[in-house]
Design a protein around this nucleic acid. Sequence first.
RNA 1: GGCCCCAUCGUCUAGCCUGGUCUAGGACGAAUGGUUCUCAGCCAUUAAACACCGGUUCAAAUCCGGUUGGGGCUACCA
Length: 444
Amino acid sequence: MVRVRFAPSPTGFLHIGGSRTALFNWLYARAQGGKFILRIEDTDVKRSKQEYLDEILDSLSWVGFNWDEIYYQSKRFEIYREVAERLLKDGKAYRASPLETDVEGAEDDAEADKKQEAVIFKVIQQKVSFKDLIHGDIVFDTGVIKDQVLIKSDGTPAYNFACVVDDAAMNINHVIRGDDHISNTPKQILIYQALNLPVPDFAHLPLILGKDGGRLSKRTGATAISDYRRMGYLPEALVNYLLLLGWSPGGNQEIIDIREAIKKFDIKDANKTAATFDMDKLNWINNQYIKTADTLELAAALEPFLKEQNLDVSGFGKDYLLSVIKLFQGRLGTLKDFPAWADFMFKDDFVIDEQAKEKHLSRDFSREFKLFAERLNALDPFDIVTIEKCFRDLLTELGLQSRELIHPVRVALTGKTIGPGLFEVLYYLGKERVSRRLLAWVKQ
RNA sequence: GGCCCCAUCGUCUAGCCUGGUCUAGGACGAAUGGUUCUCAGCCAUUAAACACCGGUUCAAAUCCGGUUGGGGCUACCA
């Protein structure tokens, strides 16, 4: 059975690159009917923080990468020491005194006392080769690798050692991780061999680059998954985008449901070229998902954004809210856009775009607005069709082009130049609010 | 510096393994036009790539070698 793992370190938030690695591991496990194991690499006690751990677990749950088992390296220090002891006994490792600078640099004597001899692995010069599921055969000459620290002088295990001990103990048979670990692989294989443990298959995923071609960093855009959640991206959209970064379902398909992806995914089809993170395409995909989302579910997803931007919709019925969401659904790039774009549907002190006002309301529309308000108030079936007819009749009477009145009315009612069709806006706003807003522009 | 990885439109990619069907397909973005109401929505059109050099072959984006360029690693971080 396939057993894969994702091994984040709680020394920072879950970022884009990490979640893509998690996605490919998770997908592969689900595609193969295997297990997806989460291993928290919190051996660096000083840098590991609870808030980071919480954020990582939270983000993984949000994107839906459910794990079958979870382990914490900080609870397994005894195991690493025992294994190191074995290597020592076999003469494959040796002890070395703690680094002078380390002891001297210790905060106080108590800390210095805790320092003990480190355990170092003897690297023997040889050719190590492995078959990478994505890259094919890779060969290293270990002559260029220094002896490796197994247990540091503070008693905690070094990364490459804890990783091997755990992958073996947890029966991980496919190690799927970032390209940056390729050069760690020969070091780890040496340890597997010294321990007489079966070497797993490796698959090294290309890195995700920022716009500047370098590593994705805060400078080149948001990196934490939780940031994207806050910016108003749907988890399905983010996952779909991440999936397209290094893998393609073929057949010119861009939008792919996760269940369909599970059926089609194979780690062997992953690309080997680094990909640049492109916000524009993410936005487009997010819009594709928002557009086709169930309106009721969208309403729930929108809640935190309404709250955050202080847009109170409680005074309106559920049906009204859903209608308004439907009106905007097709043009939303992110959920965050909604409160900003639809504010006029829920309050009278909506934001007025000064440029729009300047462009369309600089001349006096008292006569037109007053007439239109009166006509609308008298409309009996007040529906989209009759509203449009009423408006167009008025245009004919006044001898105006539709655009000459539509834009001013839109700005007066919504404060914006962009938005849903005007007649729909009129219908959902209702007679009372429409005439109040129009008459506000009428000079007495 | 040493070692390793990578190389198709600006970006994500299809094609590469199993050379000919590729005057290289799709998507994002861009530009242009349309949408008897706006666009950041919708529709249409256009521009846009096989890094370079050599080899193998009747034939190379596809196979091989080199060059160049980019990236990673080179910690008692993970």
